[in-house]
């Protein structure tokens, strides 16, 4: 590859990573589907799929990092990445919006209606035996059996504190990066990563507690469904974010990023803030109110 002059827009030539990604994704999802259909092949396919996807990500991001460090990317390329990342985060917001929408719909409409509200008096009288609407609920048929409600002010409040602090530490790291203070940068990132994984660990404890002691499961009616799907997808995003932060931390230690030029860092920081904000929504609407 010939070197680019600084004001060129870098247009890479052919890449085989996307097709590897497609094969990986198909293997992963096809394997999952096979597993759901009850075949033992499925699990193996899934593992293969995950490995291929990981291979693709290492390869793809590795190439991008090499190109970035090689000075191929000018300001304009950087801006393309910024737009790309912002709109990707927006798409994630809309994904969560679907589940928040389900939560609101259940709380504002379906449950009150089953309880006879709105134009549904007969629904309640004829079908649900004068069941009384309430939240949280596992529905008029007591789906999944008696369960306990997850309180807001124990672990979840602690987790809120943890995530909010991690937002602060990542900002501290960014500030250090802009000042060119690498040791503070790494320290800030380390703190963020530790907080992030602590959050995930605590959440795992919470889930285990819910399943084993509270009989609160995915199967606990609409409350269990919305609770676990929302917090579960969030937890998955925190995990991804924490892994990405770890990568950024190692890159920082290797001396990547400059005070002016560090989009990789910023992208992950944005992502981390997004995960943070989603958590606030969860804390308020899933745990608290």
């Amino acid at each position: 590859m010939s070197a680019a002059t600084h004001d060129d827009y870098y247009v890479p030539h052919g890449s085989h990573w996307p097709i590897v990604g497609s094969i990986g994704l198909t293997t992963l999802l096809g394997g999952f589907a096979t597993m759901l259909n009850g075949s033992t092949m499925g699990g193996k396919l899934m593992i293969a799929g995950v490995l291929i996807v990981l291979f693709m990500m290492f390869g793809w991001f590795g190439t991008v990092i090499r190109e970035s460090e090689g000075g191929y990317y000018n300001e304009q390329v950087d801006r393309s990445f910024r737009w790309g990342m912002s709109w990707f985060i927006f798409s994630e917001v809309m994904f969560f919006a679907a589940f928040f929408g389900a939560l609101f719909y259940a709380r504002e409409f379906s449950i009150p209606w089953i309880g006879g509200g709105g134009n549904n008096m007969m629904t309640n009288l004829e079908l649900w035996n004068s069941w009384e609407a309430a939240w949280p609920t596992n529905g008029p048929a007591n789906v999944g059996g008696e369960y306990e409600v997850m309180g807001a002010w124990g672990l979840p409040a602690l987790n809120t504190l943890i995530l909010l602090s991690s937002g602060v530490t990542v900002t501290w790291a960014h500030w250090a990066l802009k000042k060119g203070n690498r040791s503070q940068l790494v320290l800030g990132l380390l703190a963020t990563v530790v907080l992030g994984f602590t959050f995930v660990g605590l959440q795992a404890m919470e889930y285990s507690h819910a399943y084993h002691e509270m009989n609160l499961t995915l199967g606990s009616g609409i409350y269990g469904s919305t609770f676990f799907m929302l917090t579960g997808f969030h937890g998955f995003h925190v995990t991804m974010g924490a892994i990405m932060l770890t990568v950024i931390m190692f890159r920082s230690m290797k001396g990547h990023f400059t005070a002016e030029h560090h989009f990789g860092f910023e992208a992950v920081a944005w992502y981390w803030h997004f995960v943070d904000v989603v958590w606030l929504g969860l804390f308020i609407f899933v745990y608290w109110l």
């Binding site: 048929a141 789906v143 995915l218 609409i222 469904s225």
Partner: peptide
């Protein structure tokens, strides 16, 4: 996975799917 988004028995609603 036993969720009840779209089943009234568990507090959900088939019509909720249609809205989404």
């Amino acid at each position: 996975f036993h969720t009840s988004f779209f089943t009234a028995a568990g507090g959900g609603d088939p019509v909720m799917y249609q809205h989404i």
